[in-house]
Design a binder for these strands. Sequence first.
RNA 1: GGGCCCGUAGCCCAGCCUGGAUAGGGCACCGGCCUUCGGAGCCGGAGGUCCCGGGUUCAAAUCCCGGCGGGCCCGCCA
Length: 645
Amino acid sequence: MHVLERLGKLASQALSELDIHLEESEVIQLLEEPPKEVMGDIALPVFQIAKKVKTSPAELARALVEKLGETPDPIVEKAVNVGGYVNFYLKTRVLAEMLSEALKKYGEDYGRIKVEKPLKIVVEHTSANPVHPLHIGHARNSIIGDTLSRLLTWRGHRVERRFYVNDMGRQVAILIYGYRALGCPKVRDKPDHFMGIIYAMTNTIIEIDRLKTEINDAKKSNDDKRLKRLLKELDEWVSVADELRRKGPELFDTLVEKLRGRDHEKELSLLMKAYEERSDKQLVEVFRKVSEMVIEGFKETLRKVHVEFDYWDWESNIVWSSILDEIVEKARKLGKLVTYKGAYAIDLTSIQRSEDLRRKLGLPQFFKIPPLIVKRSDGTTLYPIRDVAYSIVKFRNADKVINVIMAEQKLEQLQVKLALYALGYIKEALNLIHYSYEIVKLPGVKMSGRRGRYVSFDSVIDDAIVRAFYEVKKRNPNMSEEEASKIAKMVGIGAIRYALISVSAEKPLLFDWNTVLSFEQNSGPYIQYTYARARNILKKYGKPVDYTNLDYDSVEEKAERRKLVKHLLKYPHVISKAADTLAPETIVDYAGKLSETFNKFYDTDPVLTEKCESKKKMKLVLVKGTQVALKNILSMLGIEAPEKM
RNA sequence: GGGCCCGUAGCCCAGCCUGGAUAGGGCACCGGCCUUCGGAGCCGGAGGUCCCGGGUUCAAAUCCCGGCGGGCCCGCCA
């Protein structure tokens, strides 16, 4: 039986003897860890209970401790009352034994508590537009999505990782427009980077032309205020153009020449329509080919940081299938199809009236969401409705869908949810989770794919690895280049993944090279280093850990030993909770604390030179526990566990 | 105009959901520790109006109301 359950039962019994009746589970809910070691191992605050039965907390705690004292418990050393708390001190020997038994029984799998009813869960993440390389903002999305997937898998769920290839928007059309104007040039460089430049250049030229037209209008109508604003905007785009031209003068000049005098908007609209209607076979091929090349670039980047997908879902496939028509038909039958601003739309107003529903779907209380427009007047579809369709597709074989999407799309995601509900997809609406995260901020720079201004994920990865290589070499001058670079990859990527997951998702993440490339405490490499230390001891010991004749009492001798035991006993629950509450950042926090405790133990309490065999074996159990826990945690974080670094 | 998120040390963050014991870390700064399993480490020091003002409570960083500051969203864009 686990410690908390044991204490819950004990306290609940003692309470009932005082004629206070509380469920064990309620008592367990109240149990907490005291802020300081000296205050005991587990505390029961009695304030709430005291209020219920109208006694003073101090009085109740005293009575409770007295009752608890009457029947000695096998795991409780003593219980004392301190100002409204009952503090339990647990028997060190029992804790040590529990840990040893669990490790002996589960081995490398220690800490894995599988859910009773596994769910099929879709995690959709990254889903960047295939028009430029992944940048550091997408990186946060990928790492969050991938870590969530790993956690849920560890917990026993069946997870499907999906990437939504957004190939039907205006952005891809812009890229294709420029790419074709250039005569479909051969790809030099990594394809996503190459296409990213063409995209940004094309977009910039289009923007500048648009602004010039608007400026002429403003001049004619003597609208000074508008003119001033437009000129300022033009100024900014011209400097963007300068930046881009410097990256590829020939490419840029050719593009300017080829696009001169053309009606961009008209051509873009024709491109989009033709792709959606599949009216031009060759054009469809170009769209597909270009998108695929960029996606290949994505895959290469993501592989480096150990992110893989099970499915790549093309938006175009959804549009070309019959599902959109089915949705429209369904809306019509349900009487939800209305005209809004002259276009077909799905009505969402009626269902927004239900207070109960608003709460269930997480809608802000007084916020109004407009009808969801289904089709443009030219007959082509819009993104939100395609997203509704995609949600239905994802749910075909899933109990729950988690979409990792940036916070600025919150309202749009709510609209999708509401539309699903309105169309009768109740289960889908209720099990659709928008896992929202804030942007990555770069000091001084506003990142923008449309302007070609971004720190690419590739460059961050490369820099981290170079820096790590230097650190590895500094510490191991005689190590071969090959081995050093292998380790540098593990360390560099460990630093990045850790940095991107350790800040809670709802906070903007300030991208600071010093933090991301930090290899010190509170970093991925710190955890890896701790792991390598633990691993090293076991390796030097040379034999499997022997769980017989352990000196459990010796754990009492040093504070750090006892602390390690407690941390390691907590580990299975920390991980389970992190998975169940979708809070990956909490396991980072735990890993840091465990590592810190282990390092203190390591510094002050030698294992291999321990003379007494039964004490040595006990210490080895602690080392083994740390090694197993850290290895599993690192794997959940998608970080490799090096044996040497 | 309406809505959502954030505000904790010079800097970056944890704690807030579920109120409770002197508010925790890391970076940077100052001072120590390599003849013992790896110093990417360990020990010590200094550093705080938990944005402000009310309220609820025996008790508020935490809950409620009102401000202030920052970010984001409200398109026949995606």
